[in-house]
Design a protein around this nucleic acid. Sequence first.
RNA 1: GUCCCCAUCGUCUAGAGGCCUAGGACACCGGCUUUUCAUGCCGGCAGCAGGGGUUCGAAUCCCCUUGGGGACGCCA
Length: 548
Amino acid sequence: MTDIVRTRFAPSPTGYLHLGGARTALFNYLLAKQAGGQFLLRIEDTDQTRNIVGAEAKLLADLRWLGLLWDEGPEVGGPCGPYRQSERRERYHELARRLIAEGKAYYAFDTREELDAQREAAQREKRNFRYQRPERFATDAEVEAARAAGRPVVVRFAAPAQEWVVRDTILGEVRLPPDAVDDLVILKADGLPTYHFAVVADDEDMRITHVLRGQEHLNNTPRHIALQHALGFRTPAYAHLPVILTMEGKKMSKREKDKIVRDAVKAAIAGGSMDETEARAISGADPEAFAAWRDNQTQLDAEALTRFAERLRLSLPEIDIHDFRVSGYLPEVVLNFIALLGWSAGDDREKYALDELVTAFRVERVGAVNARFDRAKLLKFNTDAVAAADETRLLAGLRDYLSVNPQSALTGLDDDTLRIVLRLGAGFRLFSELEAKCGAIFIADEAMVWDADAVQKVLLKGDGAGLETLRELADLLAQVDEFSVEAIDTAVRGYAEQHGVGLGKVAQPLRVGVVGGTVSPSIFETLALLGKEKTLKRIAMTIGHCER
RNA sequence: GUCCCCAUCGUCUAGAGGCCUAGGACACCGGCUUUUCAUGCCGGCAGCAGGGGUUCGAAUCCCCUUGGGGACGCCA
């Protein structure tokens, strides 16, 4: 086929873009771009109960953050729109009517309870459940009668019984038995199509030539092929990507975070550090919903999880792309790293920019093996990228980080100050580390907090030797007129030499003295940045704090 | 339970019958640098899941076992 390559990423708007979705999007993007084709974005919002308000906007923002821009789709439009399935109802109905007219689909009106009972019965008898196709299809009159009786009316596909073959670029030919395709529902009782039906219709209408998706969809593919045959549509080329697993070997999912929070909340309630009323308030759920969550039946939204994490001082694993942004990763690093989850060019190269991936990527070289997501390696990638980035890139990255961390102490600073921060913090791995290292310099003096362990270890231990040093240094620094890095350096080093101690013995008390903890940039730089007045004021406050 | 996919260091992977004494990266361990936290530098440990074949020769091909993962919805 000489068609231009068209791929799509088709998420459902249920939350932020997660790591696995991002990789799927990336591979689709790469495949399209390397062939000079188009990458489309389509929103699969056919489940009214699962759609989350605002999720689509988040999804788009995450994709844009990564630099995966779509040629057609929401907000940019295109000739095959609309690109939101909820807006394409009429098309699905038209196709369903066609299948019904041709005897390839039929109305059914089983209730949820009836189907559940059949599934349970099958389970009990240890056989697989298959929907039993009726002897003859319901007539229009019967459908109307059912509707009038309040029964849910759906349209089911009359699946042909045959062996199915999926030709997969990564897995080769996969053969599935006839029962791999059953009489699935194609139009739900609410009039919206099921995923399977919408995908087939849209991929045809949007002239999608290649479908790259997670391996969890492999079993769905024969369904789609069957529907394509029934509708007379072309079958795109398929490639099923290996699943991304956690380091523990479990499927990476939002549940990860939910589970950690649930366990912590339960422990906190059991341990008495939080009562149930507070927990419920933080969750933002009503008592019933809260109980359901607690019993592992539902999941909390991202915001509620974040609130719990803050309250219980939990660090949640990054799973959503947004999490990595908030943690201070560079988008090009995240992109580079996920490209390596399942794909390799065949040599030892690991570092790629997006345009380099476009050139180097080959679907045929995507492996079939599930990959575990190794955060430690991602961190190293970010560390390397930060070290290699120029100031302009870092400043933009830091600004972006601050835009999603408005509460940061660095947020209000001007570019020149941020450039200094970047320079003094050199060696940081994530923007969040830069913040942890330099933030305390910029908070109001009154907002200063002291790390109890640091105060104990550096100032109070050994009869307060550190505190005494700090007092003497305060006097000494009060004598320094020009509060420059050089002058402070000279004075402080001089003090250390006079007393025959290492620099550490004087730098650490000073550090705790001005920032309340043991971490800061070079002590000379830190003091100079603070200025004489603030330095002396903070040291006085620290001495006061210790005497209290 | 049924169906499907997969199997090289702890992790991501290179390897498409002799180039393999199995290469790289991360982690880890040891050392060095250092005013803290980091960074950086040097060195080291570590793997073809097991068993059968095929072949002069197998990490590479075939079979079985085992192990892992995924799917079995009016979710996508």
